[in-house]
Amino acid sequence: MGRFVARRLLQMIPVFLGTTALIFFMVHLLPGDPLAALWGDKAPDPVQLAALKHQQGLDQPLLQQYLSYMGNLLTGDFGTSLDGRPVLDKITDALPVTVRLALFAFAIEIVVGIAIGLFSGLRRGKLFDKGTLVLTLLLIAIPVPVLGFVVQTVFGQNLKWVTPTVQDSNDITQLVLPAVVLGSLSLAYVARLTRTSIAENIKADYVRTAVAKGLPRRKVIGTHLLRNSMIPVVTYLGTDLGNLMAGAIVTEGIFNVQGVGHALYQAINMKEGATVSGFVAFLVLVYLAAGLIVDLLYAVLDPRIRYA
């Protein structure tokens, strides 16, 4: 187990280096000059443009830019964005907001999704199961913007239970609406996956044995059935957490949440290499960590899986 974790951690290094390099060079390939764009439609003043280029180090060969960027990264310096703020500041501004929103949505999809999936799996073919099928299909079919605007209009503007948009991104109680919208699609997937897995495993030998041994129903379902049925769900949840962390540009836009999605979108638009690379480097780490945790969870859930 320890060796497995160590090996996975070592593997992360080339993956991290590769992805950041790819992003760095891809941002460079985007059309247009980010500094000239500071002047908008107006012709940039060549003297000032050259001075800014020099200050940002953009007048050096691309490879050298990359090397000095990576060198700074190792010392914890994420560089400076075009507006003069350190990229790390931008990350630490946006990341807590996104983490809160993502975990909120994640909690909703786990609790509600697994509960719905479990009950409809146990009552296969019954009314609840059919109702769940309709509900989840509906959630999967409705595009996020539509759901977002409907929820915003109904709860924010008509019923006035909450403000239509998030007034303070750092106040978690205001994130209820966006979290529900953000979690709803994954919730449907989690419910479908859980239901199918449960419905399949309920006929398995070990469940029949557990029932035959006279174990209480609660224990049969909780310890034996549910635990074994979680493997496909956990796989999905692992990648989904990464997706949620990368930010949801659409949801953030509708509810005016100032998170990673928006920051990244703006940085890409402005072709800010340092900011984009910084955010992506962070997200790559999140993905890698989530992948590792999922792999470790397999072993916990199913003792037959061993990591040497």
């Binding site: 915003q152 503007q157 403000t163 239509p164 948009t165 007034q167 836009g253 509708i254 005016n256 100032q258």
Partner: peptide, 17 residues
């Protein structure tokens, strides 16, 4: 107040936020 989209601002305007 910083808004990411005009749609969000409009929703807030209608509800006097």
């Amino acid at each position: 107040k910083m808004y990411t989209t005009a749609e969000a601002a409009y929703a807030d305007l209608q509800s006097s936020n």
